[in-house]
Write a protein that binds this DNA or RNA. Structure first.
Lengths: 157, 157
DNA sequence: TATTGTTATACTCTATAACTATA
DNA sequence: TATAGTTATAGAGTATAACAATA
């Protein structure tokens, strides 16, 4: 039998929390790097996706959805607006609220970055067979459903 | 057929990166909360585990293993030393290096927090059968091996 | 001159809490 | 008085780079 010198971190990989944190951090930084050329980060990507899926909404509603304080939304939306990806419109029924809606440019960039996200996901899971990929997503979904399903949505790094 | 109003974040859950980041962040903050009563955080937990697995080492070596700059190790080890979990000893062969070794107290606390970690992992995966849990760990390990196996180990949040 | 550990500095990110304008 | 959005402030966490001791 051969004896090999284990990497010291190998002892940590028995903890699924360690694996999740590592892979989550890797995926997050990689996504940000992939999205940067399009002018957005992953939080803004999520914002655009939600707008596309459920239609226009107030900043309050969006900040609730994304689990971030309203104050943090300001710069996020400012930046998207500057690039023409979303439009702020004062609601006519209640002029305190800003209705945020996706613009045509926003939808176009979303189409493009969706492809980028899928490509990165494919690369991340490249060593798994198609059915294994489905298994993994399904298992993660079930774990997520239990722990994040109905509770508060906290920030994801 | 019934129509239901989806949670807005549901549209994000198709991205495995989103799931990994969410679960990673959840697990990290939970681990920190569980470890706090024992006086350590998850990075120090990892440090103790490595020391227990591969024996004493210099701060340089440990900082390399954990993927953090040497400057960050100082406070981490200071705190562990203050609590008596590790001991710093100037190496006799090269007096620049600090040999860090686990103390008896350190080993005792490690035994205790290892149980805490296992308990939290069990809770995290409570909705999966035993074989599904094994599957999930195995799949995550394979993904990790490809992307973190030989490259630089970056900080995990 | 190069390396280990340490300290100092500066920067990024974030939540919290005022503040304004509308209601 | 209460709420949506905004701005200001302060705190945590971090990397980077300067520094001292030793090789």
């Amino acid at each position: 039998m051969t004896v090999r010198k284990p990497r010291p971190t190998e002892v940590l990989e028995g903890h699924i929390g360690y694996l999740l944190a590592k892979l989550g951090a890797l995926s997050s930084s990689r996504m940000d790097a992939e999205l940067a050329p399009y002018g957005i980060n992953r939080m803004q990507f999520g914002l655009l996706k939600i707008l596309a899926a459920v239609g226009p909404g107030s900043q309050q509603a969006l900040s609730g959805d994304l689990g971030m304080p309203p104050s943090r939304m300001v710069a996020l939306v400012d930046d998207l607006e500057d690039q023409g990806f979303v439009a702020r419109e004062r609601s006519s029924s209640d002029r305190r609220v800003n209705e945020i809606r996706l613009t045509r440019e926003g939808r176009a960039v979303l189409d493009r970055v969706n492809k980028v996200a899928v490509r990165w996901q494919d690369e991340l899971l490249a060593d798994l067979s198609s059915s294994e990929q489905k298994q993994l997503v399904e298992l993660l979904r079930r774990v997520t459903a239990r722990h994040l399903g109905s509770g508060t949505v906290q920030d994801h790094p």
